[in-house]
């Protein structure tokens, strides 16, 4: 274990008895989990099992959905993120998110990355902003591909590049946690490999939580794995443990392909 990885294992997010309702639909039931810092935690499970719903609780993106109700206790560094005094706008600057489909804004590559720093006033002047953009693009492992065309529209990039641009955009606000909602599901295998490599890099600095449909991906990238089924958290533990010796029969059925 090298220097940068110190701090791994400290609890970053702790959730207790989280319930989510969409209207009359009880989408998430009694989820309690502790997520460690400087690690990749994977959420796996069949479609509609609530893994993305839980992910969206962590940066309060569910607030933007009409009729969605979240109960329970979610703490980031010990602070209740659903407390009335917490502004979701500030929370989302600390908890970045990358979506399933690359969604660069219809702006230049530079403006895409500078978007977050600009709205949060992170740079005092243009040169500081340039610095943030370059640093974020480098950490997003896309700097070398775009450094000569920062004025080109973000939408002109390929799918894999767009997704790395979106990761760089999320990093630019210096978040502590990165949420990734199936970040590779719209990408080809080569782009997927690049993103996975990047995620492995990112865990040195961030607490990374990713939702994935691919069990191989969870096994390759994550250190911790949580298995969701029918709105419940069935099993949570070391990735190796979950995949080789699951304790719950439902986990085993899913991993061996009998349900899902």
């Amino acid at each position: 274990m090298n220097q940068q990885e110190t701090g791994a294992g400290e609890i970053k997010i702790s959730a207790r008895d989280v319930q989510v309702h969409y209207g009359d639909n009880h989408a998430l039931v009694d989820v309690s989990v502790d997520i460690s810092d400087k690690m990749v935690t994977a959420f796996i499970g069949p479609s509609g099992c609530g893994k993305s719903t839980f992910l969206r609780c962590l940066n309060r993106m569910n607030d933007t959905i009409d009729g969605c109700r979240v109960e329970g206790d979610i703490r980031l560094d010990g602070e209740d993120i659903y407390a009335p005094e917490v502004d979701p706008v500030h929370l989302r600057a600390r908890v970045g998110m990358v979506f399933q489909k690359p969604n660069p804004f219809p702006k230049s590559i530079y403006d895409n990355v500078a978007y977050g720093p600009r709205i949060h006033g992170l740079a005092k002047n243009r040169s500081e902003l340039d610095e943030i953009v370059e640093k974020s693009l480098r950490r997003g492992a896309i700097w070398d591909e775009v450094k000569d065309r920062l004025d080109a529209p973000g939408t002109s990039l390929s799918g894999g590049q767009q997704q790395r641009l979106c990761i760089a955009r999320a990093i630019a606000t210096s978040p502590e946690v990165l949420l990734m909602d199936e970040p590779c599901s719209a990408l080809d295998p080569i782009a997927t490999a690049q993103i996975e490599e990047l995620i492995d890099e990112l865990r040195r600095q961030f607490c990374v939580i990713m939702v994935t449909h691919s069990m191989q991906q969870a096994a390759r990238v994550s250190q911790r794995t949580a298995f969701f089924h029918l709105g419940q958290l069935v099993e949570y533990g070391e990735t190796g443990q979950i995949f080789t010796n699951p304790s719950d029969p439902r986990t085993e059925s899913y991993i061996t392909g009998r349900i899902g």
Binding site: N59, M61, T64, V89, H90, L91, R92, A93, G96, M97, F99, K101, N103, F105, P106, Y115, G116, I119, H120, C166, R169, A170, T173
Partner: peptide, 21 residues
């Protein structure tokens, strides 16, 4: 909707999302 979500997830307010994206 993905653009709207992308902007909100970066911590933009609704107003900023409308004006800038």
């Amino acid at each position: 909707r993905s653009l709207r979500d992308g902007s909100l997830a970066l911590g933009a307010t609704r107003g900023e999302t409308v004006a800038k994206v």
